[in-house]
Design a binder for these strands. Structure first.
Lengths: 238, 238
DNA sequence: GCCAACTGTGAACGATGTGCGCAATAAAAT
DNA sequence: ATTTTATTGCGCACATCGTTCACAGTTGGC
């Protein structure tokens, strides 16, 4: 029954036995290093164990399922930066929150593959949750209104990062940058354009082959975020 | 070299040999059925083959990697509804797009686990892409501006659906609804509240235990979407 | 000093994705 | 009509994966 507890509630080591050779942080760091370097699929129990110089089964003394290792990883990257004190300017605070989430997600592309349906409540995650929860302190908003605003921002962040990662992934698989990814799909990409079945899509794709593609996504992120903040602002004054 | 082509560019059957026992649609339907019923992890080559009454290795005559089966699945659910003609009202069209994407994502929760980093260009996906591309037809917007607007909407949709699925998942794992999920985490959930380290978060959590939780997410989706559409509207008139 | 709790590990199990070769089949070439 | 050739289904096999279990060694509380 104590073993079915959340990992954050389990003691980091037993009170009795020999002192552990490794720490949770060791496992986590090795796993994150592997995922960053070779993708999430490289994070296997055996590989992580090898990285630590331990037997595969040794990991199960620190983690009860592989999922928990992912939870540790998620909270670890959330802790790569600490949330600051509230500035008193909710716009600035939300902007900072957005940049932080985007940055860590882009720095660790495996996050998007691991996070869906695996919300965790590690200490670092909690600190950022606390930061967002208090962003509107001083404003007369109900909890529901606060949640609505936070929902919008975090939804936009998460969704946009997903798109960015998608394009990065396409670039990685095809070996070319965004401007030519259509053509890079070979005959199929050509057929989409020449077929004439998708005029609107074709027009956008061709026009979007402009030379500013490298920072297009980043600009879109900033611009979209500001518009969403605008939307929140109108809700605040009314 | 023809085998390294995108699946959508490969012929559905060879020109020479015996006629295939199954079709791509058969595989796809079986896989989707499995994923809907038992989660994405139930979609194994062997299980899908069994569902079809075929040997596991037979699937590799229709699909060159398991990833391609996922691509087929993604496009199949995108085709559960056809995009309508443009109404001339971009707001209505974007609203419809949002509802469609949200509905299919909630109907097939495995989509969120499969889609990240696996953008595909099947015929159904292309039709929806064409629909969104033409939403602003008649308005004097550059391709970049159109992309910016679409980015915002689809980012919000994707991100919000991710959140909704996350909460659904928590409810599934803990067996309780959202209002009590904190308490359901046992001693750890209690400690977050009683510890006093996260006052803002605690306040929101307690206040959010209101009786309207069941449609909170849906309402948030609609409200947030309207605000984003507002943001787009201001960009259109200026 | 004893006992109970805890640690690391080797062996093992069932399951997974996938490559290879072979027999059967159907269309194209002769 | 017969041969050739591409293509299909499948049995076998392999490497790898997550995870269980029993066991030997290690520590702290009594």
């Amino acid at each position: 029954m104590s073993s079915e507890q959340v990992i954050w509630a389990r003691p980091t080591r037993g009170a009795r036995g020999p002192q552990p050779t490794h720490t949770r942080e060791d496992l986590t760091a090795a796993a994150v290093r592997l995922a960053d370097a070779e993708g999430i699929d490289a994070v296997t129990i055996r590989r992580v164990a090898a990285e630590l110089g331990a037997a595969p089964t040794a990991l199960y003394r620190y983690v009860s399922r592989k999922d928990e290792l992912f939870e540790l990883m998620m909270d670890a990257v959330a802790g790569e930066a600490d949330p600051p004190e509230h500035s008193g300017d909710w716009r600035a605070d939300l902007r900072l929150l957005a940049e932080h989430h985007r940055a860590t997600a882009l720095r660790h592309p495996w996050l998007a593959q691991v996070a869906p349906g695996r919300a965790t409540l590690g200490p670092n995650t909690l600190r950022w949750l606390e930061f967002s929860s208090g962003v509107f302190d001083g404003h007369p908003l109900s909890a529901d209104e606060i949640l609505l605003n936070l929902d919008m921002v975090t939804a936009f962040i998460g969704g946009h990062v997903l798109q960015e990662l998608g394009e990065v992934d396409i670039a990685r698989r095809t070996g070319v940058d965004h401007e030519r990814w259509l053509a890079a799909q070979g005959a199929y990409g050509e057929s989409i354009i020449t077929g004439g079945e998708y005029p609107f899509l074709t027009r956008i794709m061709i026009e979007a082959q402009a030379p500013h593609a490298h920072d297009r996504l980043e600009r879109n992120f900033r611009l979209g975020l500001e518009r969403i903040l605008d939307g929140i602002a109108t809700g605040l004054t009314s």
